[in-house]
């Protein structure tokens, strides 16, 4: 944790050192993201800071500044302040909420700033020059396809879902589409708020209620941690697979180690912010068109490709 603070201090110091004169010649890319309040957003902050450091070093003509905000209204104030106090050539934004950020971002767009939107879309897609997002439907769908294949098309499943949001709905929908046509049966599906503790309790209750569970899917890795602990405590042997999603490093480690119960993982990687920052930098440094929409696939992470998704220093 100290290390990140040092990075932040370093970035600030670097900004101060360059001064306004040289800053005027540089292209400024502002990055506005939610503050770290759980695993995934912590990953976003980590990767955004990493991208800023790397790009600032690699491209002398580009300066990336990162600003985190704890709420939608704070994010609105933050981007308004940034655009009011300095020249902003590009804004990379992962919006807290689509509704509240659309109008403020549009105002900035009208000043000629290049807009990159990440993950959550704005209400008006015409505002963005570049859109980078993961594929939540694929997260559910690919996990489901893996289970259908490995379990021979039949078996009893229980599912833990997160907080009622679009992300949650899309993952569940993808999963349900994925098992369609097979004899896999969802015994139960309940909310556990993307929280390990609640997932632990819910899994205990599932285990008490159903004598035969063949596989568990928690649609987020935080919840998977609780699920695994509950299974371990129960001593039950009927559960063959317990899968998650998102690409948390603890789970990737399991995949790398060839864990039997959790052999695969589906990414919804917070590193998408890094992809978006690099692409935006490419717009200024590369003289190649980067406008458009990029949907990162959610391929299955297996033992073979796990290294690519493993960031040991990331908090997520």
């Amino acid at each position: 944790m100290l290390r990140n603070a040092l990075i932040a201090a370093g970035v600030t110091a670097a900004l101060l050192a360059t001064g306004p004169a040289s800053a005027a010649e540089k292209k400024v890319i502002a990055v506005s993201i939610p503050a770290a309040d759980h695993g995934w957003t912590a990953g976003v902050v980590y990767h955004a800071n990493a991208a800023a450091k790397e790009i600032n070093k690699a491209f002398p003509g580009i300066e990336v500044i990162v600003k985190t905000s704890p709420s939608a209204s704070a994010q609105v104030s933050a981007i308004e302040d940034m655009s009011a106090t300095r020249k902003m050539d590009a804004l990379v934004i992962l919006p807290h909420s689509s509704e509240e950020l659309t109008t403020p971002v549009k105002t900035i767009k009208e000043k000629g700033t290049f807009i990159t939107v990440v993950d959550r879309g704005l209400n008006d897609p015409h505002i963005q020059d570049l859109y980078v997002a993961g594929d939540n439907i694929a997260v559910g769908f690919n996990t489901a396809k893996f289970l259908v294949e490995k379990m021979g098309g039949k078996g009893n499943l229980v599912v833990l879902r997160g907080i009622p949001t679009v992300i949650d709905d899309e993952r569940i929908k993808g999963f349900q589409d994925g098992i369609k046509g097979s004899d896999l049966k969802i015994l139960d599906i309940q909310y556990a708020n993307w929280n390990s503790d609640e997932a632990f309790k819910l899994m205990q209750d599932y285990l008490a209620k159903y004598p035969q569970i063949d596989a568990v899917w928690a649609n987020d890795d935080d919840m998977l941690l609780g699920v695994l602990e509950a299974i371990k405590q129960s001593g039950r042997k009927d559960i063959k697979f317990a899968l998650g999603g998102n690409g948390m490093k603890e789970i990737i480690e399991k995949v790398k180690a060839g864990d039997a119960m959790t052999p695969v993982e589906t990414p919804y990687p917070p590193s998408m912010i890094k992809t978006a920052i690099y692409l935006t930098a490419a717009h200024f440094a590369g003289h190649a068109p980067v406008r458009g929409a990029l949907k990162l696939d959610a391929p299955l992470i297996t033992k073979d490709n796990a290294e690519e998704y493993y960031f040991p220093d990331s908090p997520f």
Partner: peptide
């Protein structure tokens, strides 16, 4: 606690 964990997890 958020600061100590960097927003993530300390195990």
């Amino acid at each position: 606690i958020t600061y100590m964990t960097d927003g993530g997890t300390v195990a």
